[in-house]
């Protein structure tokens, strides 16, 4: 980590170099972590693919040509074609859009609600805590995917509904993490000090407690994106995700599974796409955790 240097100015007084923001210091720490940089590069690459999908895709991902169905990878179709003769390469690229957007928005949704529930429960304690956390326990006792299927069944198909279903399922996890972290520092002396100087509860939670529980939240959220990507794929695999014919990795896997021996490439490429995305977010999550901890910085 770089520290500020005192510089002697002309009139002899000591001036301060422009202070480095904490964000900048974090950034320095992050880019020194090779695994995190690798994860970040992959994510940037995926975002690039998602944004410029239109220009990269060699074919229309939804254009079916039964004459060329189930073709093995070739120069014309890098990843081969599926059972309807659609270009798998184009469909994998198109699927990046859905996976990334569902992953990120579902986590954002779950994180914001989970943080509010967890913070209120942890900071207020008592009956409020009991009510909120028991409710979260009930949600946790139902398997994620089952809960998501229930919500999808109730809400119907579609990306936006998948976001809500997957998001709601992971609220309890964030609430638990936030509550646990808050409990561990709620009685620390610097939180007491914040009270002594006249902070109100809101400011104590948002300025003094939450920044200090950021690292577990960030790590969980980045890992949560990979879980959400997986859950989206699982919903797709079960035929509950997006509306066909939209290209979605899980949906592609689900449709291809009957051809697993006949045309394995139909599963391999969407599978690899899911793996890479999940891995990239996991690597970045670990790197961020280290970067967020001022003591872990070099």
């Amino acid at each position: 980590m770089k520290t500020q240097k005192a510089v002697q100015t002309e009139n002899g007084s000591i001036a301060i170099e422009k202070p480095e923001s904490q964000f900048k210091q974090m950034w320095y720490a992050l880019i020194q972590n090779k695994a995190a940089v690798a994860g970040m590069i992959i994510i940037i690459f995926l975002i690039f693919l998602a944004v410029f999908a239109k220009f990269i895709m060699p074919y229309d991902p939804n254009y079916a040509d039964l004459a060329i169905n189930k073709q093995a990878p070739s120069a014309a179709h890098w990843f081969g074609t599926d059972e309807q003769g659609r270009d798998i390469f184009s469909r994998v690229i198109d699927g990046t859009k859905i996976s990334l957007s569902v992953g990120v928005t579902a986590v954002a949704f779950a994180l914001s609600l989970g943080t509010i529930f967890g913070a209120v429960a942890g900071y207020k304690g008592g009956k409020i805590d009991t009510v909120i956390m028991r409710f979260m326990d009930i949600m946790l006792s139902i398997p994620d995917i089952l809960l998501a299927i229930t919500f999808m069944a109730a809400l119907g198909r579609g990306i936006d509904k998948a976001v809500i279903a997957i998001g709601i399922c992971s609220i309890p996890e964030y609430a638990r993490i936030v509550r646990g972290s808050i409990l561990s520092i709620k009685d620390s002396e610097y939180v007491q000090a914040a009270k002594v100087i006249g902070n109100n509860d809101m400011r104590i939670i948002f300025k003094h407690i939450l920044p200090n529980v950021l690292s577990p939240m960030i790590v969980r959220a980045t890992l949560g994106i990979s879980t959400a990507v997986l859950n989206t794929a699982a919903l797709g695999f079960l035929g509950l995700g997006v509306q066909p014919p939209a290209a979605e990795w899980g949906d592609m896997l689900g449709r291809a599974r009957v051809f697993i021996f006949e045309a394995p490439y139909m599963l391999i490429f969407p599978g690899i796409a899911i793996t890479i995305t999940v891995l990239a977010f996991n690597l970045l999550g670990d790197g961020l955790r280290d970067a967020f901890d001022p003591k872990a910085r070099k």
């Binding site: 610097y190 100087i197 006249g198 200090n212 001022p294």
Partner: peptide, 22 residues
């Protein structure tokens, strides 16, 4: 009560614990 915070201040026992690390 908070309005009186500025009149009564506290110096804590443990300087390693009483400052917000962030």
């Amino acid at each position: 009560r908070r309005a009186y915070c500025k009149d009564i201040q506290l110096v804590f026992q443990d300087p390693y614990e009483s400052l917000n690390p962030r």
